[in-house]
Design a protein around this nucleic acid. Sequence first.
DNA 1: CCATATGTTACTCG
DNA 2: ACGAGTAACATATG
Length: 279
Amino acid sequence: MPELPEVQTVVNEIIKQQLLGVKIKDVEILVPALVAPMDKADFEKTLKGRKITDLSRRAKYIVATLDNGTYFISHLRMSGHFVTIDAKEERGRFERARITFANGKALRYDDIRKFGRFNLTKDKEEILGKLGPEPLEKSFTPKLLFERLPKDNKTKLCIKAWLLDQTNVAGLGNIYVDEALWLAKIHPERPANSLTLDEAKSLRDAIQSVLKKGIANSGTSLGHTQGNFISADGKHGNNAETLNVFHRQGKPCPRCKTIIIKTVVAQRGTHLCPKCQQK
DNA sequence: CCATATGTTACTCG
DNA sequence: ACGAGTAACATATG
């Protein structure tokens, strides 16, 4: 579910709720698979008594630095949510973990599909080492993007699949890839090795634009069912209404009024304007 | 019952 | 060993 803007929104919200520097009083892992291959009891014991000294985002990972030099790294995958609650609150239907703090607040982790994962490690590169560049960093220049694109003739990988691979660019997912390719007027099935430097420049600008807008709008929530994105304050994001193609099949392209179509590319639902984005 | 879902990774086939 | 495509993970919803 959450992509870079949604994960950033969650991190921002947890910081705002002042859970940094507060001692962790109790840790309950309700689904052992959440921390696998680590043992559930070991995980609980290791995190208990620590304080989070810093919280940040890398790609779609939430990285909590602990006061003993280890890192608590979590990934929400498709349906994970962190919500700050009062420690007295009862269990939720989809609650999979709870971290209770000494100040009476708690972080509840809900995850319908149980795809999310928690890690505890002294070496964060073990988890984050293979990730591509952060697209909102200043160093993410058109030249950098262009040079990372495949250059050989044997790779037929399309640009959408390439962008979804976190080792190429970190943090993009299905929504923001479709939005960025529309903004850059690039067809998602274009071979990644066929992009020109000019197109790479448009794509870089488009990626930064859609991600910044997503963060400014506190993330994208596509509906109001249980599986949808909410931040740690329990609120939905406001970015859905500003989307140009995603989930807008059958509606007119905001640029040229051609009807937006939905197909499948890289095994994912893909939305595009057949006039603005030509192969 | 079937298809689909904001993500990642293990497996399979060339 | 490598790249590309597919299945799998687990559950809800339309």
